[in-house]
Design a protein around this nucleic acid. Structure first.
Lengths: 150, 150
DNA sequence: TCGATGTAGTTTCCTAGTCAACAATAAGGG
DNA sequence: CCCTTATTGTTGACTAGGAAACTACATCGA
């Protein structure tokens, strides 16, 4: 009846809604390990790339340098990440995990697995793959559009 | 090789990633109308329910009362929403759109349509419906779990 | 009727993330 | 060489949103 499209007719709305709730529940699980969702993402990101510059990490994770800067601050306070100067370039730095940070990642990963399966475990493998494929595809399309405009 | 699951193996990660980017681009579009994504959600929510209490709105939109309280403040400053006292109960209030707020909603709706189709327009109808169905389903399952525990 | 309990909104504090301005440093061009 | 321009990372201002404390009011039970 209304000539105005409903909130719930947009996939963006559902994505945002579900994403908020999934992240929120994951945050609750991570709490007992004293870590937040964003911190998990950075820790996991540093786990398999060797010491990397904040800029590099930012691009890899699709965040801004500012966000990484603040995140790194918190993780350094928690002794999970180290920031080191680069002798070749006084502007540059490298981030890497501490021993403690590295040890923590597998535990957090298992919480992530658990959370994901709580929310999406009831889906068939095919459904999960389809969604993931579609979401990855959306990211790729945006990147193609976004990069040239810089 | 690594015994630790990858970030990108979790649907929650992709949801969060894509959702952030979709919302961000939508925010950019809304900017010219002087409105944010969350504000759009509240405006649209008020568009077809008649004057409603903040609590009611909060539950409908899956947010906390605190969030609605702050959002309403901003929208009232912008003269898009009105807050009125309830004569029957001095604690209670009702939120409703102003003339200007009501007039704005259809314009915002068309921006929402445009944004959604930029990101998801390339998908087949079937794919869109599948994703939406799955996301709605996740919400339903969680709600069933969440309500009884209160 | 009055005290205990419950409920509506607001406020404060925190994490999260963007943007834009900034300082420091690097790299090139004349 | 120096001056301009580009790049690195940090910071401050802002929106966003949950949690929990708090105020004001309502309601129920003895």
């Amino acid at each position: 009846m209304v000539p105005v499209s409903d909130l719930t007719s947009h996939l963006g709305y559902w994505l945002r809604y579900v994403s908020n709730h999934v992240s929120h529940e994951f945050a609750r699980k991570l709490e007992e390990r004293g870590v937040t969702v964003a911190e998990w993402v950075l820790l996991r990101g540093l786990y398999d790339i060797k010491p990397a510059s904040p800029s590099h990490v930012a691009e890899r994770l699709g965040m801004t340098r500012g966000a990484i800067s603040k995140l790194a601050d918190r993780l350094i306070d928690k002794r999970l990440v180290e920031r080191r100067a680069n002798p070749d370039d006084a502007r540059a730095q490298t981030l890497s995990l501490t021993q403690g940070g590295r040890a923590l990642v597998p535990e957090l990963a298992s919480l992530a697995d658990k959370n994901d399966s709580e929310f999406f475990g009831h889906l068939s493998l095919g459904e999960r793959q389809l969604i993931q494929r579609i979401l990855e595809d959306v990211v790729k399309r945006r990147d193609l559009k976004a990069i040239p405009t810089s």
